[in-house]
Design a protein around this nucleic acid. Structure first.
Length: 201
DNA sequence: AAAAAGATGTGCT
DNA sequence: GCACATCTTTTTC
């Protein structure tokens, strides 16, 4: 796919993220996540997300309240929350009104633009290993902790857009991946039958 | 069987 | 506050 669609991007507005987290997680499926690097947009379509709530969600980083490391999660909706894990990072967008402490984790992309650049960043060329995991997609898009706390509407290095090409798909909900608390809540959402979703058999 | 990924955890400047 | 180690699960060979 070429880039004509990016000539007229419909960037998501901040109010898009102010509603309840589960809805935002569902709505983000199919949206485009783009990273500006070397005067080129690289990225693709979001195919898998997870919702992290505040109240009663012990798996969420916000469950114990606001602290130094998770302060971005309590900022205004549309703020980027990047947290470190195992020498890598994962990418979230804050939802709900300010001070709630909820966010959507972007878990997988369908790579579309700048695949060669993403292959270089990842050090491999297997398509389904490029961005099919929260830490993988951050490495592919060169997202690091310098993005933490930035608002995506004020961040020229990133763009979140509505996808006006392919919007027809079924959404599947399942329990979230890799957590030890609140394990049964069906807060993981992905595009049915998409080959770039993580943890497929 | 071996490698990779990951809502961790520790430790130091 | 930031860098990085480490162990379990999942995926690939």
């Amino acid at each position: 796919m070429t880039e004509p669609e990016l000539d007229n991007p419909k960037q998501l507005v901040a109010s898009y993220f102010a509603e309840d987290t589960e809805s935002v997680a569902r709505n983000l499926l199919g949206a485009l996540l783009l990273r500006r690097i070397n005067e080129q947009w690289i990225g693709g379509r979001i195919v898998e997300t997870e919702a992290y709530l505040h109240e009663h969600d012990l798996a969420s980083h916000s469950a114990r309240g606001k602290g130094n490391s998770n302060a971005a999660m309590f900022a205004e909706p549309g703020t980027i929350y990047v947290y470190p894990i195992h020498a890598k990072v994962c990418f979230n967008v804050v939802t709900q009104p300010e001070n709630v402490g909820a966010a959507v984790l972007v878990r997988a992309l369908e790579p579309i633009w700048g695949i060669d650049v993403m292959e270089t960043h990842r050090g491999l060329t297997t398509p389904t290993r490029l961005t099919s995991g929260p830490a993988m997609l951050c490495q592919a898009l060169a997202i690091d902790r310098s993005f933490n706390g930035r608002h995506f509407t004020d961040e020229p290095r990133l763009m979140l857009c509505q996808n006006h090409v392919s919007t027809e798909f079924d959404i599947v909900a399942s329990p979230r991946i890799g957590i030890s608390k609140s394990v049964d809540l069906p807060l993981r959402f992905f595009i049915k039958d998409n080959r770039f979703v993580s943890r497929r058999k």
